[in-house]
Amino acid sequence: MEFIRVEDLIFEYVKTDEGGAPVATRAIDGVSFNVERGSFTAIIGQNGSGKSTLAKNLNGLLLPTEGKVLIDGLDTSVPENTWKVRQKVAMVFQNPDNQIVSAIVEDDVAFGPENLGIDPAEIRQRVDRALEGVEMGDYKDKAPHLLSGGQKQRIAIAGAVAMEPECIVFDEPTAMLDPKGRREVLAIARDLNAKGMTVVFITHFMEEAACADHVLVMDGGQIRMEGTPREIFAREEELEALCLGVPAVVQLASKLKQRGVDLPDGILTDDELVRALTEAKAE
């Protein structure tokens, strides 16, 4: 069942030039796709490919210039739907510092539910649960600026989870983190997905896209490729033409195959490669 439906979406940023005349820059140019309920969709593409703009169109932060975005059947461009849509689709942004509102961790996590007008006792429970979910329960009285980037991003995720959305859009949540923080954030996203949350994960790290059920490759505001990670990463040359690579493991596997090592197609993770290599050796 589809949860997000994007139909012929066109989005233009409008600026005024020095003479005061409006100048439109097209960031998204005719994009259509669906996101299934409970799926893990990754969107990859280089800087300026329109992926962040697309993300902000998914919960009504930006509204389509043309075309439609339907969230669970609700049109984002209808003003009455705005709050419902934002409650259904929560968002985690790139910069961990600039999305934390309050000077105390648990107060920040409570910010979303407070805006929804939820009963104080219920907010308390949600905040505790959300913080436990990202393993930050011990830090609930701390000041966010004393935490590491990865920890701050986990707080931001808890803030999104506490709103009890049906879908979380991650807009390059790992771009500003160190490798450890990146692993933690990805693990939490996968964990949420395993518990039934629909996840849209925007990234330019191919290793992270390899965890998805479904991958969209964007370039110049359009979707250039779409499919499972296995299908996408098999098309190494096309990806390279878009200035994107494939995960290091995939690259390694294909180089090994060129050297004559007998390996199956479609290796995506370290574990798969290790297993395939041990089997190849056993034979």
């Binding site: 509102v101 910010f111 407070e114 007008g117 939820i118």
Partner: peptide, 19 residues
């Protein structure tokens, strides 16, 4: 921050509760 607050349904004082 304004984006992030909007994404978390901030709409001023209307119907807001406190933890």
């Amino acid at each position: 921050l304004a984006m992030a607050m909007e994404a978390r349904c901030y709409g001023g004082v209307v119907k807001r509760t406190r933890m």
